[in-house]
Design a protein around this nucleic acid. Sequence first.
DNA 1: GCCAACGTTGGC
DNA 2: GCCAACGTTGGC
Length: 151
Amino acid sequence: MKSEPDAFSIAGLKSRPKKTEHWDGVRNYQARNFMRAMKNGDLAFFYHSGCKVPGIYGIIEIVRPAYPDPTAWNPENHHYDPRSTPERPLWDMVDVRFKREFRRPVTLTAIKMQAILKNMHLVQRGSRLSVMPVTAKEWNTIMKLAEEKFQ
DNA sequence: GCCAACGTTGGC
DNA sequence: GCCAACGTTGGC
């Protein structure tokens, strides 16, 4: 799951009450559908984009599965979408809880250097999705890279 | 249904 | 700041 750290970072999530926050503002159908596939207890990587060192900064846990995103109904909100109403919600969000922050991020550069990760959704084509799937193999490879950083 | 125009994302 | 890649919109 991607976020620009200036808007919302893993440190920001960690500092929230119960280290939990809504992951709102997703306005892309494919990303929304990936969120709808999430279950309670699922883990996700927290990716920082649009910053000096883009990469995976830690792990979060899904603590509430997809439900309507009320920010879409608020004309004051940057992600307002009049097509979505409380009666017929169009966009969803999930609740995520801070799990762990890597001491050093697994950078996009490091990910691109791993041949085994070349099929990762994140590094394919012009993938701009803010929510995307990770396979078990990819997850384990990223975790190994994260552990190496502790040495 | 096609496709040009436009806005957005995000790495560099 | 640039620009490639992408999704969406709307005219036809």
